[in-house]
């Protein structure tokens, strides 16, 4: 015979493992998105550093390719795992995210250096918030990139885009690979 305590323990075990499986699916999709955005951010920063006159076009391309790639990855993972990973709401969330960012950028009259710091910090704010629901890994990663971005903004001179290519771009790629193993 099995008593209530043992049954409750078994149900807790089931709930716990189900939550971990779902978390691992979220980590998996997030890791792919981070690697994609990381590679694009590296390219954006390199173009900004090497040929500043093309910086605007480069970043516009980064955003368009990033959103398109995110939609494709989300749809692929949804088909594979049956998880509600990307839909119209997610696309609208992206649009609102960038619209708010551009709004702040305009009313703040940000120069290239400020924009170079603002976007990663703004991006990472959502990683920090995501950590409250989906696992501490997101928050740790977000806070680390924010801290390194601020260090670069204050202490690194003309090579700031290169610093950001490493901190934000390579950071996203490494973070994605780490999250894949989590």
């Amino acid at each position: 015979m099995i008593d209530r305590l043992e049954a409750a323990r078994a149900l807790d075990d089931i709930e716990n493992i189900t939550r971990r499986v779902r978390q691992s699916q979220i980590y998996r999709l997030s890791s792919l998105l981070m690697i994609l955005w990381g590679a694009l951010v590296v390219l954006g920063n390199l173009v900004t550093y090497l040929t500043p006159i093309y910086a605007d076009k480069a970043w516009l391309s980064v955003y368009v390719l990033g959103i398109a790639g995110s939609v494709v990855l989300g749809a692929t993972e949804k088909a594979r795992w049956g998880m509600g990973s990307f839909d119209v709401r997610s696309l609208l969330a992206f649009v609102m995210f960038f619209a708010f960012g551009f709004f702040v950028e305009r009313i703040g009259h940000f120069g290239p250096r400020e924009m170079g710091a603002f976007w990663p910090i703004y991006f990472m704010l959502f990683y920090c918030l995501a950590g409250l629901w989906f696992g501490i890994a997101f928050t740790i990663f977000g806070l680390s990139v924010i801290a390194l971005t601020l260090i670069g903004y204050v202490f690194i001179g003309a090579a700031f885009p290169l610093w950001m290519a490493v901190v934000n771009g390579v950071g996203l790629i490494l973070g994605g690979l780490w999250m894949r193993r989590s």
Partner: peptide, 29 residues
């Protein structure tokens, strides 16, 4: 009912029908 088998079944049950988990992933979970 055996605890580890319950965990294995719970992990697999969290996935859509026909979707599996790799041994290493299952081991970690």
């Amino acid at each position: 009912h055996q605890p580890l088998r319950l965990r294995i079944m719970a992990a697999l049950n969290a996935l859509p029908a026909g979707t599996g988990l790799e041994f290493v992933r299952l081991k970690k979970l």
